[in-house]
Amino acid sequence: MKEFIKTKKITYNLMSFTAFKALILFSELAESPKSYSEICDIFYNHPYLHEKISIDTLRVYINSLKRFGCEIKRVKGDDKISKYVITSHPFELKYNPEQLQSALKVFKSLVKNMDIEELISMEEFFEKIGTYIKNEDFINEAKKVSLLKDIDKNLLKTLLECCEKKNQIIITYASPNSGEKNMELIADKIELTNGKIYLCGIGFEYKEYGTFLVNRIKSVDDIKSETTMPEGLQEIKVVYELYNNKQPELESYETIIEQTDNTFVVEAVTSNKFLLRQRLLALGPNCKIISPDEFKNEFVALLKDMKAGYYCG
């Protein structure tokens, strides 16, 4: 071997040529169909071999591979020339159903902790494995787990790119209320909530920050080269106290402006009052709105209406 490393010359004393040829033949036929003459050329042009192979010797190699467990077929291409190909072999990836179920179970435990990019990668990975093991059911089960079942992955990748660049885009959106229509927005982020994927951004129609279900987006029709904020966009600044023993998990539009023991004073700047109101409602008694009065009064009126619903309903 030392001699080979030095001179790069192969001798019969150094290695088994028979084994070497068998390895070449295996890898060539596993890669794609090859005719006898193509195999001869490969052997003849190989730097360590420089010799052709007789058809009888080739048969011996093929019989050996078959005996080992390779499935070798003879196929004819458009040129009508007979070619050999390995369609399956013992080194292929093989799993029993329990191993596949365990992998899916672990994927399921991860799915809600991943961001969208990781989720796309993981689904594509499982799809790849499913293709290698020729198991369509496994691919479908992985898709069910991944939450991307009804989502066009290429479209999702485009949207992710747009969010990264904060692009101003025009999408075709199938709205449940007004049907299919074009919508213009400045893409901000892709969010995963309750197993649903949303595109978040500033919409031009209602001139406010909004969320759009990705599986209702049919296409991205235009990505504008420049971004301009919609005219008349009105942002509201709301200040509230959060009573929490731990550092609260904030939204992108929130900042802590003051902090005492268990009280955090938070300032939110947003164009979407509806989403903010929903968030503050979910915080319940752990949150108290300080300003502005108009927003606070609307909030209190809503709480009173909710209460009335239980006594009058």
């Binding site: 028979t18 084994a19 068998a22 048969r59 019989n63 050996s64 078959k66 005996r67 080992f68």
Partner: peptide, 12 residues
Amino acid sequence: EKCNESCIKMFE
């Protein structure tokens, strides 16, 4: 059919 036993051993 004629086989090369050593090759089979190597693959095994």
